[in-house]
Amino acid sequence: MGMQSVLNRRWLPTFVWIIGLVLFWELASWFLLHVSEAPMAQSKIPYIHELIITFTEYGTTLFIEGRATFSNAAIGFLLGAVLGVTLAVLMSVSKWIEQLTFPYAVASQMIPILGLAPIVYGIMRDEQVARILIAGYITFFPVALNMLRGLRSVDTSALELMYSYAAKPWMIYWKLRFPAALPGLFSGLKIAAPLAVTGAILVELMGAQNGIGVIMLRNLYYGPSHNYMFWSTVIVGAFLGVMSYLIISLLERFLAPWQADFRTNGGDR
């Protein structure tokens, strides 16, 4: 009963919205197909029940290709995250490194960094390496910047407390700066995770042997006869992006549960 009421209060509206959108979509699909008789109607807005049928038929293929994309994105993501955190720590330790790299890190936030993907692909020519590399370097900058912001967010009194304990520098990092930086790190990771997936799919679209992007492109070229399969790959791609975000959010709840956003009482948000 208690569980149910929580479900009602928090997720009912979202649930209703989803149902409403699905119904609207089905209606639009029917309208396009039978009323306005648009060309390629089912390619534009396919029936959702047809998509579900496709999913049950080709679930294994979709799963295998999705997994290939996701694991490559994940490896690159981890690599980029580790390097990003490392740079942030170096920047917070050394004024020199900070002055040297900070302007470039900021500029990287202003330029369309995904545009570099074809170039990296052009240099590497190896799909596996290119996927990992692009996922990694897309992850790198947001993580580095947000982690640095987190490391700097420590307030003076908290630092003074550490000084009053005559804490060694590594102690200050371990006991104070790292935990204080966790929320910042996670906001960087949450930005980066879907981007890493995007980068991996992008490389696959440019030419690769396996991955969800590859069958997406293939089914697109096959034309209207493969439109349900094409739409299924699009949905899997979107799902991978959302999944990556949810996984990081879940991790955050476990590793940094003290944050204001997670508080159940108080505040009217």
């Binding site: 307030d155 009194s157 908290a158 407390l161 009053s164 935990p179 204080a180 966790l182 003290w258 944050q259």
Partner: peptide, 13 residues
Amino acid sequence: YGIVFQSPVLYDW
């Protein structure tokens, strides 16, 4: 030394 500041300065985590 033991220091108590104006604000508690407890570590949130």
